[in-house]
Simulated scan of single mutants.
Amino acid sequence: MKKFVFFIAFLITAVSFAQQERELKLNKDTNLIEVVYYHDNGVVSQTGYYTLDGKLQGEWLSFDAEGNKLVSANYDNGKKVGKWFYWTDKTLKEVDYSNNAIASVSEWTNKSKLAIRD
């Protein structure tokens, strides 16, 4: 019951203070809140999941106003984990997180076709 009350309070707060358009949907199978944020032009800005207690969970993706992928990030119960990818026109950066801290950083230039932005 406590989680349900928190979930309702979270939804009301999220909707009340929204600066961007967003969609919230509870996935009953995973007990995660699926979120989609939108740019002013209607293009998806971010997608990801929250736990019922408001922590970031799983894969989060960020896009620019034209729909190009900018960031692929991973969270586990609000902590940064695994490989994160940052795309620009000229580079791809891979940041590896361990214990919520940066463990390593790699960078590639756009001269190779190593990784393609979807």
Results as ranks from 00 to 15, higher is better:
Ala115Cys: 03
Leu11Pro: 01
Lys55Val: 08
Gln19Ala: 10
Tyr86Thr: 03
Tyr86Pro: 00
Tyr75Cys: 07
Arg22Leu: 14
Ala115Gln: 06
Lys83Gln: 06
Glu21Asn: 14
Thr13Ile: 08
Gly54Ser: 11
Asn110Gly: 02
Ser62Arg: 02
Arg117Asn: 06
Tyr75Arg: 05
Asp118Leu: 05
Tyr86Ala: 00
Asn74Leu: 11
Gly58Arg: 00
Tyr37Arg: 06
Ser62His: 01
Asn99Ala: 14
Asn100Asp: 15
Lys80His: 03
Ser104Pro: 07
Asp40Cys: 07
Ile116Asp: 09
Ile116Lys: 12
Leu26Thr: 07
Ala115Trp: 11
Glu21Arg: 13
Lys25Arg: 15
Ser112Val: 04
Phe4Tyr: 12
Gln46Gly: 00
Gly67Pro: 03
Asn27Val: 03
Glu107Ile: 12
Gln19Thr: 10
Tyr97Phe: 10
Gln19Asn: 13
Tyr97His: 03
Gly82Arg: 05
Met1Tyr: 11
Asn110Leu: 04
Tyr37Met: 12
Thr91Ile: 01
Lys111Asn: 08
Ile116Tyr: 03
Leu26Trp: 02
Leu114Ile: 05
Val44Arg: 01
Asn31Arg: 02
Arg117Thr: 01
Gly78His: 07
Gln57His: 13
Lys111Gln: 11
Ala18His: 10
Val43Ala: 09
Asn27Met: 02
Gln46Ile: 06
Gln46Arg: 13
Asn68Trp: 02
Ser106Glu: 11
Ser16Arg: 12
Gln19His: 13
Asn74Glu: 04
Thr47Gln: 02
Asp76Tyr: 09
Gly54Phe: 12
Asp89Tyr: 06
Asp53Arg: 14
Val71Phe: 12
Lys79Val: 08
Trp87Arg: 05
Lys113Tyr: 02
Ser45Asn: 14
Phe63Cys: 01
Ala65Gln: 14
Gly54Ile: 13
Tyr37Gln: 09
Gly78Tyr: 06
Lys3Val: 10
Glu59Ile: 11
Lys25Asp: 14
Lys83Ser: 09
Gly78Val: 07
